[in-house]
Nucleic acid binder design. Sequence first.
DNA 1: GTGGTCTAGACCACG
DNA 2: GTGGTCTAGACCACG
Lengths: 130, 130, 130, 130
Amino acid sequence: MQINKQSNKPYYEQIVFGIKEDILKGILIPGDKIPSVRDMAALLLTNPNTVSKAYKELEAQDVILTVRGRGTFVKDSATSSPSSKQMDKIKTKLQEAVVEALYFEVPLEEIQSWVKQTIQEFGGEINGNY
Amino acid sequence: MQINKQSNKPYYEQIVFGIKEDILKGILIPGDKIPSVRDMAALLLTNPNTVSKAYKELEAQDVILTVRGRGTFVKDSATSSPSSKQMDKIKTKLQEAVVEALYFEVPLEEIQSWVKQTIQEFGGEINGNY
Amino acid sequence: MQINKQSNKPYYEQIVFGIKEDILKGILIPGDKIPSVRDMAALLLTNPNTVSKAYKELEAQDVILTVRGRGTFVKDSATSSPSSKQMDKIKTKLQEAVVEALYFEVPLEEIQSWVKQTIQEFGGEINGNY
Amino acid sequence: MQINKQSNKPYYEQIVFGIKEDILKGILIPGDKIPSVRDMAALLLTNPNTVSKAYKELEAQDVILTVRGRGTFVKDSATSSPSSKQMDKIKTKLQEAVVEALYFEVPLEEIQSWVKQTIQEFGGEINGNY
DNA sequence: GTGGTCTAGACCACG
DNA sequence: GTGGTCTAGACCACG
């Protein structure tokens, strides 16, 4: 995992997203201890406060569990069901991306293929009749 | 088109997106004159500076064209081909939305259906066997 | 509203609680603009970052709404329904306080009276047959 | 008694609270010897330092008494009268819990019922016309 | 060693 | 003028 310092995306959001990616990819599994705030900051060449902010956000989203004095752990993903608010947010984000693509005349097949690729890369088993 | 003042999305981005939506929907077609910065600001109950910023962004993206003294016009979409940079940005945005959805265990069928719905609403002609 | 710098309660939590109190008391009503992060920091003789943290927490709890560049506003309390998690937390907190009181042999009548007083001070109209 | 390692409440506070609960419930009665720091640590699968901290806190609150070489004992509750400082703390804690509940529009009846339940569970004899 | 809180101060995006 | 992000660095509570 790395922070793209050129991106206009805040560092802490990149960390939040990166952790989720690692969980989806199976690099991190439920129960795993993730690096301490300080270690992660050293790894990512950023400030501990920034990592701390990311971890707090991840905890608010029920992705990790942090125990004072002991560390931070990956939660069971089954536990974390999104609120309808989060659901709406995700849906809107997806739709906006699609509209954007359509506007710039990305061929439909390509849009579909991007989605499929991502699902295959991150989504694990896919039903045959899809 | 309206601005959602509750949204955490910047007003100017909402305007940029709204114009693109209107074009995709056919409400605006190439060559159409769009309201002046001041008129649009009045329509949207917002600050002219905000509209101006949105128009500049739309011009940078080759979506509209401002002719001094004559007004602002919707460009021919054929003219506006996205740079590979824009293309990457769109792809990344789409993938991130999908990853987010996967993380929160949105069923694959639902993700697909969201994409299809959006395409059908905005994308015009869709091949039957798609 | 004031921060008790002697208290072991974090400043930012005191601010969160203080805002809720002011809403319950009617000092703040839905739609009201609350002081900017900087102004509030000056009022409370604390650091803007601390106020910012409090405001973020209040927004996460659906108590206030912050609009970039415009300010921070009190939300309609009807909108903010607590999650079952929040509910559990509140219940636990209340029960712990009661257990503590019982342990130190606070008379039952006194415990009841504390609760009633608080309800009368903050709860507005109370049904007669209570 | 058990420690909830998921809770964000410090372990030592959980122990302090747990002992008080046991006394209120009658599981522990004045004069009872409670497990040594080491035994308790083994029982609770935690660090002896943590138990030690809890015992010190309980001693400071006049709940238990440690006699060097003989062990740790539950004090007579009559002996342990709270300082007015402790009293204020308890009152504040209770009021805060009630304010929190009111803010989130927990019905008054429910707040009352939570208090009653707790009293009935822990408080022993309750006057009929209460 | 772990995360939590707080300060001081900088720079930025938005309206 | 508004909130958001980030850094650097301090001190603290907990285990």
